[in-house]
Amino acid sequence: MEKILKDVVLDNSDEIVRMWIEQVKKNQGGAFYQSLSDEALENTNREFANAIFEGIQKGKIAKTPLDEFAEKLINLGWPLTYLTDGMQVFRRSVVKFIIHKWEDLDFSEADNYFELGDDYFPWVLEKVDEWVDPLVNELVSEYSGSWENIVSLQRMALQELSAPLIPVMDNITIMPLIGTIDTERAKMVMESLLDGVIKHNAEVVLIDITGVPVVDTMVAHHIIQAAEAVRLIGSRCILVGIRPEIAQTIVNLGIDLGKFPTKSSLRKGFQTALELTNREIVEDTNREEEIENLIESLDRSEEE
């Protein structure tokens, strides 16, 4: 930015900020702004203006006040349009102001000199653009970069959540499904289910759908396909965690789950799994007897 223009802008920052705020307010009529109090909007607008001017004063440094301001807005969930609108209005205000003040500018020490009647308008526009454009670019890339970051982190987290496999016992593995299942996720579930069966050498897999909110034909179809694939690779599936409302929808939709066993709870399913692998739970009765003997001996000692 030409020094002469920069000086005139900085010297008259109060005037420009006033123009800017007036103009910006006219654009802020959308639903998002109506949910904010006038005071909050006013304060943020002032902060925005200050950040812009501080940025100009300090020039190019690694972390400009504008960056910090943008980061804050992103975290608060403000729309990107607030920032881009604001910068556009700022550009217009500055151009308007400079042209308004043109007559008073002192070009005696400047590189450029304009005669009376010269067309200075394109020159001013170019200089202001040179100055505002990098700021806008920086803001937008900061904003979208931070969003992309959040989205990719969430996608990773979701993938990790997607299909955990828990080998609870030799030959018995549990896959708890939580959340909505779409085609993409169903495919992932099926693949990690099959790989897990091989990896853990699971004879029986329990698929727990307690955490699946809705079981429609599509979800049921995917679960049936997964169960059939599991059978093909030589293992068996038990579907557990069927809540009453899910049993109702399954029957009402005419979905046939008859081909593989289903159980209402993980506990019952686990018992079936034990039976299928020729095992059972044996209660350890010795301890109870021990306690009874102890109590008896206490009784006797009291009598004596």
Partner: peptide
């Protein structure tokens, strides 16, 4: 039939082939 690979199982299901009456097991031992 033993040792059907996961990828093979998935493609068979996609093809609509379920080999319903064919007994399967994880490996030779099973």
């Amino acid at each position: 039939l033993t040792g059907i690979q996961p990828a093979v199982a998935v493609t068979l299901i996609d093809l609509g082939i379920h080999l319903q009456d064919v007994p399967t097991a994880l490996d030779l031992e099973q």
